[in-house]
Nucleic acid binder design. Structure first.
Length: 643
DNA sequence: GTAGGGTTAG
């Protein structure tokens, strides 16, 4: 390497943008370095893998290179393998095969195989495997390991094993790839056998075991590995935290996060996104604010997923304005996830028009909406009652953007019509869908029937639902409640009895409230502890005050006769959100806002009670239910009674 | 002059 080349390479490593790289390129041309194969190759590699958004420029560099060599092809194939269009890797491979076929080497195959793995495309992967076989590269340690990873991604454990057996000296990375293959198939015993026969274990092997157990919900086993590990790094901790959050064990996730801190480790971006997601789901906004401060202090604001998690947390905790602020101030790159997160946040609050405006803005910024973005915008329309607009967008999605609607999009449409009370239209839509409706679709429609009190259609929908998922207890509860609200107590009781016969237990409704940074959970009908007793006592007081000062009339009390206690409880009386709000009124400082998170959809009676409380007690209540946000203020709700 | 295995967001 000569001095000019050396200088060029050291300058290259500091190029962070395409612009600075182009300046360096101009400089190289001036110094007659542009005909230097080494320089041209390095420039291309830097564009392809180190500068975000410069991959197309890298492609042009290759197409215009006077003598494209194997190194250049490999660089471009590598760049595409980590992009959002890994299929371009494969087309570059084909081009290389045509132009420079004899020079395909272990790098070419390893990078191309990575793309096949990312695409989970077994067909492409197998073709590349053939190419490797023809060149005797299938037993090459790097190619072989990547082949195993590819088969792992495609859940072909047998093929992964075969490749492994042919590799003469598998190293620890090869073993780890094989371990992944077994876990990918959910084969714990197979994975344990591999782990047991490994000649050496590194930290990554233990982390793989942890992740594998955690993903399969085997927390006891995961905890054993975690406690026995000779060394733990940030990935070990992150794996535990993320896994616990994914399984809804928020308290334990918070515990691990605290322990991580106590043993002197610093939370990294992954454990932070994990614990933020726990805050989002549990509604722990005060704790999230502390984490936000930490994120800013340690410079993690540059990490896009962290910002996205912050936005998601703030919007799911009812502070969509904070979410917007995070979005506007993000110093790093806004990904399509960033935009979609805020769109959903606005939609949950019923800000349909703002969500639509943001969607347009996203497109203007050059991002092309994907399938999930369309789910978000359709969700926005359905939660804001924008039926016409929603139908229009649904049409454009396939006709203009060429995105084939999937079951989630159809679900949004059913919700759109159903929420708006256009039940028959929703029903026709379901029966005319080009793909068979699943249980979620029918359940959405059943929810709409419940909200709009259509008993006949509900019965019909429930029959279809029972064919698909007969043992879902919440469907039975919903139908029973539909009967109860219509005063058909005998039918309600029949549904209840069938639940007993089918041995179905109902999903208990729970609500959480944060007081002094501690989350309290309330479950209707569970009265043994002091905290719940306190809530019940306060609730009784509140309800009588509402009757006198707010003119409260219970939704079904007047027709409740000759009914078993259980149906009454379920239909209205002491739903968990009422207990949580009562607890909040008893414990929170005057003037604090009440924030509640509920796992099911709020019922009409509770919604009514919340409105009255907000007026009589001059309180602002934010309630997140399974489906959306409700901000109660001065006797009315932000959802405009539309939910 | 380029690689392979372990934890992140809608």
């Amino acid at each position: 390497m000569n001095r000019a080349e050396q200088l060029c390479f050291s300058l290259l490593s500091s190029c962070k943008s395409l612009r600075s790289l182009q300046q360096l390129q101009a400089h190289a041309t001036k110094s007659a370095l542009d005909s230097d194969q080494l320089v041209a190759g390095k420039l291309l590699l830097h564009c392809a893998v180190h500068i975000s958004g410069a991959i197309d420029y890298a492609r042009r560099l290759l197409l215009h290179a006077p003598n494209p060599d194997a190194f250049m092809y490999n660089a471009l194939i590598r760049g595409f393998s980590d992009s959002d269009t890994p299929q371009n890797s494969i087309s570059t491979f084909s081009l290389m095969l045509k132009n420079l076929g004899s020079q395909i080497d272990s790098f070419t195959l390893a990078f191309s195989l990575k793309s096949a793995a990312n695409m989970r495309c077994l067909q492409t992967g197998t073709q590349l495997h053939c190419q490797a076989l023809m060149r005797g590269l299938d037993t090459h340690i790097f190619v072989g390991t990547t082949l195993i990873s590819m088969y792992a991604e495609c859940v072909c454990v047998g093929s992964a094993r075969k490749v492994f057996d042919e590799i003469p000296n598998p190293n620890i990375v090869t073993w780890n790839a094989l371990l992944t293959a077994f876990f990918r198939r959910g084969d714990v015993e197979g994975a344990e056998r591999v782990f047991g026969s490994m000649p050496a274990k590194s930290l990554a092997s233990y982390n793989l075991m942890l992740g594998g157990y955690v993903k399969l919900g085997e927390f006891g086993l995961a905890r054993d590995v975690f406690d026995e590990m000779p060394l733990k790094d940030e990935i070990s901790w992150s794996t535990m935290i993320v896994g616990l959050v994914q399984y809804g064990c928020f308290d334990e996730a918070f515990l691990y996060f605290r322990r991580l801190h106590e043993v002197g480790m610093r939370p990294n971006e992954v454990s932070l996104t994990g614990v933020l997601s726990a805050c989002a789901q549990a509604g722990a906004v005060e704790f999230a604010k502390i984490l936000h401060g930490f994120v800013e202090k340690v410079g993690l604001v540059w990490i896009t997923p962290v910002n996205n998690a912050l936005m998601d947390t703030y919007s799911k905790c009812g502070s969509v304005d904070m979410a917007r602020l995070v979005f506007e101030r993000m110093p790093g790159k806004k990904s399509i996830v960033s935009w979609t997160t805020l769109i959903v946040g606005l939609a949950m609050q019923g800000y349909g028009e703002e969500a639509l405006a943001l969607f347009d803005e996203m497109e203007e910024s050059g991002l092309r909406p994907d399938g999930v973005a369309f789910v978000a915008i359709l969700y926005a329309c359905s939660h804001a009652g924008l039926v016409e607009k929603g139908s229009e967008i649904f049409e454009t999605m396939s006709k203009v953007y060429g995105i084939k609607p999937e079951i989630e999009h159809y679900g949004c449409m059913v919700d759109l019509y159903g929420r708006a009370g256009q039940l028959l239209k929703a029903y026709d839509f379901v029966t005319q869908m080009p793909i068979p409706p699943n249980d979620v679709i029918w359940r959405t429609l059943l929810g709409a029937c419940s909200f709009h009190g259509n008993v006949e259609l509900a019965e019909q929908v429930k029959r279809s639902l029972s064919e698909l998922d007969p043992s879902n207890s919440s469907d039975h509860v919903l139908l029973s409640n539909i009967y109860a609200f219509a005063g058909k107590w005998k039918d309600a009781a029949t549904v209840r009895r069938s639940m007993v016969e089918l041995k179905l237990t109902k999903t208990p409704g729970w609500s959480m409230i944060e007081v002094d940074k501690i989350m309290y959970t309330f479950i209707a009908g569970v009265k043994q502890d002091d905290m719940t007793m306190e809530a019940y006592k306060k609730l009784t007081e509140i309800m009588s005050k509402l009757k006198v000062e707010g003119g409260y009339i219970p939704e079904v009390d007047n027709v409740l006769h000759d009914v078993e206690e259980e149906e009454k409880e379920d239909a209205v009386v002491a739903h968990s959100e009422k207990l949580a709000v009562a607890f909040g009124i008893a414990r929170l400082a005057r003037g604090s806002n009440v924030r509640i998170v509920k796992n099911l959809r709020v019922c009409k009676d509770c919604h009514n009670v919340m409105k009255l409380i907000s007026k009589v007690y001059k309180l602002e209540i934010r309630l997140r239910d399974r489906s959306r946000f409700h901000s109660f203020k001065n006797g009315s709700c932000s959802c405009r009674d539309y939910w």
